[in-house]
Nucleic acid binder design. Sequence first.
DNA 1: TATTTTTATTTGTATATACAAATAAAAAAA
DNA 2: TTTTTTTATTTGTATATACAAATAAAAATA
Lengths: 151, 151
Amino acid sequence: MKIEDEIKSTVALDLSKKIILNIMYTQNILSEKFNEVLKPYDLSGEQYNVLRILRGQKGNPANMCVIQERMIAKTSNTTRLVDKLLLKELVTRNVCPENRRKIEVLITQKGLDVLSELDPKVIEHENALTSNLSTEELEQLNTLLEKYRNQ
Amino acid sequence: MKIEDEIKSTVALDLSKKIILNIMYTQNILSEKFNEVLKPYDLSGEQYNVLRILRGQKGNPANMCVIQERMIAKTSNTTRLVDKLLLKELVTRNVCPENRRKIEVLITQKGLDVLSELDPKVIEHENALTSNLSTEELEQLNTLLEKYRNQ
DNA sequence: TATTTTTATTTGTATATACAAATAAAAAAA
DNA sequence: TTTTTTTATTTGTATATACAAATAAAAATA
């Protein structure tokens, strides 16, 4: 469905407005679908995101700054996200011995296990969305989004 | 900047994952920039969205259902958004006389004035983002996003 | 007409975003 | 060495999202 129909627009939209609405709306659909994948695991999208960043550290701890700069939503409150993961025993949190301002966050085995179980479902979710676009179209979409964003 | 660099990814991402991150990240940047436009007017993006829907009604009231289905974030809580706008006297809210379950929401003159003042700033924001893409590229981006979303 | 179902909206609760202020340790400067 | 500045994180507050449950009026059915 076209974006005008999705939001039942009564007026014609010009291209630059359409692009914005299309990006916002598409992101909303994406998040909703992904939340459904995560729901049985009692994880929010941003909590999952933090776990993915921590797994990417391959055994090295990440401090709050590092997590923050790797997140998609740059204004997320990392402290409180880590709090939630700590309660579920998916991460550990310790003061860095070399620099007591820093906090070392590590994913636990339980956290790694949850991610392993989720992996195939996440891949399925990702691939389902791209199934009717060709590789060329996907590359074009990536390029256009990057060009659009980088003013 | 490429999406891998934005989120400082340590591993290579496959195309379908890259698309998702790119859409999510681009929407975040868009929202952040738009929030800056709205900030002097003490409006959130979703509050602005509701005002736009109400102006689009051209004098006719909109009930909660109608507002909801025209919003970008379909799970927004319209009741509470309208509450906030009511406090700022940007809308009125009345029970529909024909159907007392329905609520008629109307934009006030004050609300229309705020939108008028914002209009040029919003257009400037929209155009700034599209400035280095050609019309063909913008149309392509719209088409690809719609194709991507509509599985 | 009385009962059930559907529709429209509100309310409650947990989580997350957005942004400013507070805290505290480390580093730099006086 | 004391003071100031910077860095890293936490906390507070308002707003918004996500989703379930509650409320209440209208419509459909028995």
